[in-house]
């Protein structure tokens, strides 16, 4: 080996190591971000309280203080847990059903371009249809229990997942497939090492959208026909002009959405460690 090439290997190493000061700056930025978020939440709560007391009126938008009191009461009498659990179950089971079906459907469509092109118009038609309008039918077919709402949720989630997974399969790096093919890898090896990992970012992105849809589906399902759940609580509170009750349920729904998203973020960190951009 020549002296020239020996020397060349060194500068490459030095530049690839992040400096300690950079790391300190990054942790300061993370802390500042957290403080900013906290400040934004406090600002909104204070603004709401002031607007309710001095401007719009409590009977229209309730107040954060009253909502906090109601939350406490509901927690003590157990109704908070009952309604939240009901809505969580509907959204979660429906999300799982939708994601599972979407993965299978997306894989089939991604692998068969011909089938995909054949049913694309119909698929886009159903996708564009407001699925909420199916809710009354699901209630007729499946009753007012968990299954009807979970099915409604699944019907909303499934298409996003399916279209994303299809796109994920289509956009797999050609070189990865060729590299495996050139080494005579089995189909199973290809799926395990190339196809499934390539699909995961697309799948996670679709689940993120799906979470919002799942909660919409669960609440709409409860509006159509239910005897408990946060959606039911909103509608029954509204019907007796109990704005505090309606807003309390909305706040809980919001927290539920945040928990879902947080869980997904943890999953993303676990599954997408190899992507440098995700950590931010």
């Amino acid at each position: 080996m020549t002296a020239l090439s020996e020397n060349l290997s060194k500068p490459v190493v030095a530049s690839s190591r992040p400096a300690a000061s950079k790391r300190r700056q990054r942790s300061w930025l993370a802390l500042r971000g957290a403080l900013d978020r906290l400040a934004a939440i406090i600002f909104m709560i204070v603004a709401w309280q002031l607007a309710a007391q001095f401007w719009i009126g409590e009977k229209w938008i309730s107040t954060p203080v009253k909502i906090a009191e109601r939350l406490w009461e509901m927690l003590l009498d157990g109704s908070l847990q009952i309604h939240t659990w009901e809505t969580f179950k509907e959204a979660f089971v429906g999300l799982l059903m939708g994601v599972a079906l979407g993965i299978v459907g997306g894989m089939i469509l991604g692998l068969s371009r011909r089938l995909s092109e054949a049913i694309d118009p119909v698929l886009m038609g159903i996708y564009s249809l407001p699925r909420v309008s199916l809710a009354p039918m699901f209630v007729i077919w499946l009753g007012i229990g968990l299954l009807a709402k979970a099915t409604l949720v699944a019907s909303m989630v499934v298409f996003v997942v399916m279209l994303n997974v299809r796109e994920g399969i289509r956009s797999i790096d050609r070189d990865h497939i060729d590299a495996f093919r050139s080494m005579n890898a089995s189909r199973w090896m290809m799926w395990r090492h190339v196809m499934i990992p390539s699909m995961i970012p697309w799948l996670l992105a679709s689940i993120r959208i799906g979470i919002g849809m799942a909660l919409v589906g669960a609440v709409v399902g409860e509006l159509i026909g239910a005897s408990q759940g946060l959606g039911w609580y909103v509608s029954s509170s509204s019907s007796i002009y109990d704005m505090t009750g309606a807003f309390t349920a909305l706040v809980v729904l919001m927290i539920l959405a945040m928990i879902f998203n947080f869980a997904l973020s943890l999953l993303e960190k676990r599954l997408m460690f190899w992507r440098p951009s995700v950590s931010s």
Binding site: D175, A179, S182, N184, H193, P197, W274
Partner: peptide, 19 residues
């Protein structure tokens, strides 16, 4: 089909980013 015993080094390195 693809014969055994042929190694291909690609222009892009073709390494799996998740491994």
């Amino acid at each position: 089909n693809v014969p055994d015993g042929v190694g291909f080094v690609f222009q892009s390195d073709g390494l799996l980013p998740w491994r």
